[in-house]
Amino acid sequence: MTRLTYAIAKPVLLWALHFALIYALISAACAPRALLTQEVLVVTAAVLTLTAATLQIFWLWRTSSNGDSEPQSSDELLLRRAAWWTALISLIATLANLMPVLILPGCQG
C-alpha cells in the first residue's frame, strides 16, 4: 500500500518539477539576461518533456497491470485506480507544458 500511495503522488510531482523547469527555461531565454537562445530552449525543453513523459507512461503501464499478479485487496485496487488516473492527467498536463515552446517562434509569439 505504501508503494501505491507514493504512486499517486509521483506523476504529479514530476509534472510540478517539469513545469518549474520549463518556466525556468523560458525565463532564462526571455528575461533581460537572455541566458539561452531559442534553439537551446526548444531542444532542452523537448528532452526534458520526453524524459518526463516516458516516466509517466511507464507509471501508467505499471499501474494498469498488476505486475506481481498477486491478489489485491479492495484498498489496493482503489489506490491503483487513483494512481493510474493521476499518471494519465499528469502525462497530458506535461505534454501541454511543452506546447508553448514548440508552437511559438519566439519569446514574444
Partner: peptide
Amino acid sequence: AAVVSMGFLSFGLWAHHMFATGLPVMSLTL
C-alpha cells in the same frame, strides 16, 4: 486522483492573473 492532481496543477496557474503585465508571450502561453 482528481483532488491530488488539482492540488499540484493549481500551482501552475499563478501568472494567469498577470497576463496584462507585459510578461513574455511564451510565459503567458505556458
